[in-house]
């Protein structure tokens, strides 16, 4: 197990662990802005809404004569229905329903549609559907060099965009009215944030799975917030926590049998959050107890 952490248990396992660390870093950074803009639950709905798209992408590729599991097709489908889900949330909030109800309704309906399509694929027996359901909870088993490289490039792109937009994103989250007066196109910034989130969700499908990916966005960012009062520093710490959780989680699940990757990474994130809650210099329980005593 130690050898897995130290990247000595084989080339593939090492690559996957590095890929997961990059994913975690990007997710923690993006998640900081998601939390600040209060989009945590919308992101969850978007993640669940990728499922029907993955199924449709698979069916489309089988219909075109492929074997169905090629990543680009699955990702294109996922992005399409995730965007549709996001649009549906926005459309529903224009009725008298509140945002939380819209999110819950879209999340469950799209997920249900995805489950229906997955069962259609199973009954058809076409293509090579085995393992398609790993997008639900993630699995690094069978990940290849190609997947790790995709994670690395995707993560780097997300970080690059974030580096350019960070100031505008912070200002939009803090005070949208003022940001608009300063010439920032706040709606474009919100769209950009959702696209970045979507990118993290898509990258995270293989590793963490769509049901739990929101945790990798939200939890490291919430933990990091306990350590600093500066948005930029919070984002860096969140990235660090996400990277550590991704790396250790992927390595653990590669060595211990029956250890699903997504849940392990999520629990590691939560451990970091719990530790932060105890040790944080400002809000930490230790400090509070110290004050009380």
């Amino acid at each position: 197990m130690l050898s897995a952490l130290l990247l000595q248990s084989g080339y593939n396992a090492a690559l996957v662990a590095i890929g997961a660390a990059l994913l975690g870093f990007a997710a923690g950074m993006v998640g900081t802005f998601v939390n600040l803009r209060r989009r945590a639950l919308v992101s969850d709905a978007m993640a669940h809404a990728t499922l029907p798209g993955i199924g449709l992408g698979f069916l489309a590729m089988v219909a075109l004569g492929g074997e169905g599991r090629a990543l680009p097709g699955l990702l294109a489908g996922a992005a399409l229905t995730a965007a549709l889900g996001l649009w549906a949330v926005q459309a529903l909030t224009r009725t008298r329903l509140t945002e939380d109800a819209a999110i819950a309704a879209v999340l469950s309906t799209f997920y249900g549609a995805g489950i229906v399509i997955l069962t259609v694929i199973q009954t058809l027996g076409a293509g090579k559907p085995a393992g398609l359901e790993t997008v639900l909870l993630g699995s690094t088993a069978g990940m290849l060099e190609m997947d790790a490289i995709t994670l690395a490039i995707g993560g780097a792109l997300v970080l690059a965009v974030l580096a350019v937009l960070r100031r505008a994103l912070v200002m939009t989250a803090f005070d949208p009215g003022h940001a608009a007066m300063m010439g920032i196109r706040t709606r474009a910034m919100d769209t950009a944030l959702m696209l970045l989130t979507l990118a993290v969700v898509l990258l995270g499908l293989r590793v963490v799975g769509l049901i739990l990916i929101v945790a990798l966005l939200v939890i490291p960012a919430a933990a990091a917030r306990l350590w600093s009062d500066r948005a930029g520093v919070v984002a860096m710490i969140a990235g660090g926590i996400g990277a550590a959780a991704g790396h250790i989680g992927a390595a653990l699940s590669a060595t211990v049998p029956d250890l699903p990757t997504g849940p392990v990474i999520v629990l590691l994130c939560f451990a970091a959050f719990a530790l932060s809650l105890i040790l944080s210099p400002k809000r930490g329980l230790l400090r509070r107890l110290g004050h009380a005593g």
């Binding site: 600040l36 500066r230 948005a231």
Partner: peptide, 11 residues
């Protein structure tokens, strides 16, 4: 009174 999140990580 600015309608902002007063818990925002900004000094």
């Amino acid at each position: 009174r600015a309608a902002v999140d007063w818990d925002f990580p900004a000094r």
